[in-house]
Amino acid sequence: MERRGTCLRISPCLNGGRCSNIPESYTCDCPEIWKGSRCENVVASCKSSPCHNEGSCVNKVEDFECHCSSGWDGKTCEEDVQPPILENCSANLIVNATEKTKLVVWAEPVFSDPMNSELRLSSNYESPQSVFPWGDFTITYAATKIKNGLCTECTFNISVRPTPCEPLKQPENGALLCNGWDNAYGTFCLVGCRSNFTIHPPNRYGNWLICGASGNWSSQAPDCSLNMEKEGDILAFHPSYTDFSFDECHNTTKLRQIFISEMTSHPDLSEFCQLYQACNDVNQVNVLC
């Protein structure tokens, strides 16, 4: 029959502790990193190698502190705080299209995890290409760690625009008036002339110079090459001359108003004008003179 409170054949001391009998009891002589009546508790020091995942340990008074390697945190560096790593995230793309739609291809980002955790990948596009109309579109990719929900995203924009137009040459003795709003989708211009000058031939007054998706102008800006000495001669030569004339470049309010009026009443251009509120603002008309 075993005696209570003494060292038994199977020692009550844990973790390599050495048992010694004392009257009606026993004591455990514990190894360095263990303590307690049965050597059941780890001594709070670096001797127990408490830091995981390559963390370094620093002894404190009856305690320790772990300095964790990159991507780990917690008392013993047991907590994974490393989000997925992102490479090859595309920059914003600006694409010119001569048609109203354009096939755009982009490079997919690459996600990885140095902790070898399983990642769940997602995107708002099934493949790295799509046919886009003119406009702005946001592409998003994401990688999420399944075990803890840490997430990394790649987001970039694709802007599809008509082919840009080369700037028109300023007409001699004249001014060039063009829409200053949303001209990436089309540029529409009229020519005005300084007082006592007119376009030759004069029937080109009020003719629109248009550059659309092709990036090519319908025609070049005509010069105000004909010098008319008398206003009466000018009016006889072309009645609408005074509508498109100006005295000083800094005073072109009348020309801007004519521009807005001509655009809003045009059978085709009025539709473009209706899309944008800026079309009603004379200050949004660009003047080059």
Score class of each variant (00 low, 15 high):
Glu108Gly: 08
Cys193Tyr: 00
Val104Glu: 00
Thr198Asn: 11
Ser219Pro: 08
Thr242Gln: 14
Asp73Glu: 13
Pro222Met: 03
Val105Pro: 06
Lys230Thr: 06
Asn88Trp: 09
Thr252Leu: 01
Thr155Ser: 06
Ile210Cys: 01
Asn88Glu: 12
Asp29Phe: 12
Cys51Lys: 01
Phe272Val: 09
Gly206Val: 04
Ile210Asn: 00
Cys77Trp: 01
Tyr241Arg: 05
His250Trp: 12
Val105Gln: 09
Phe64Glu: 05
Trp106Met: 02
Ser127Gln: 10
Gly55Asp: 03
Thr6Lys: 08
Leu121Met: 04
Lys230Gly: 05
Asn148Asp: 08
Ile260Ala: 06
Pro109Trp: 02
Val81Phe: 00
Glu108His: 08
Thr264Ala: 14
Ser112His: 04
Ile199Asp: 14
Gly36Phe: 09
Thr242Leu: 15
Pro31His: 03
Arg161His: 13
Cys39Val: 13
Glu79Cys: 09
Lys35Gln: 12
Ala97Met: 05
Ser214Cys: 00
Val110Tyr: 11
Asp223Trp: 07
Arg38Trp: 12
Asn21Phe: 00
Ser219His: 12
Cys165His: 05
Gln274Ile: 13
Cys211Pro: 09
Phe259Val: 02
Asn227Met: 15
Asn286Phe: 15
Asp29His: 08
Lys102Gly: 04
His67Pro: 05
Asp268Thr: 15
Leu190Cys: 14
Glu271Asn: 07
Ser25Phe: 09
Asp247Cys: 11
Lys254Asn: 14
Glu32Lys: 14
Asn179Ile: 08
Arg9Ser: 13
Ala221Pro: 00
Ala213Glu: 13
Cys189His: 03
Asn96Gly: 07
Val110His: 09
Ser261His: 13
Leu14His: 08
Cys19Leu: 04
Asn92Ala: 04
Val191Phe: 07
Cys151Phe: 11
Glu166Ile: 13
Gly180Tyr: 00
Ser11Ile: 08
Asn15Gln: 03
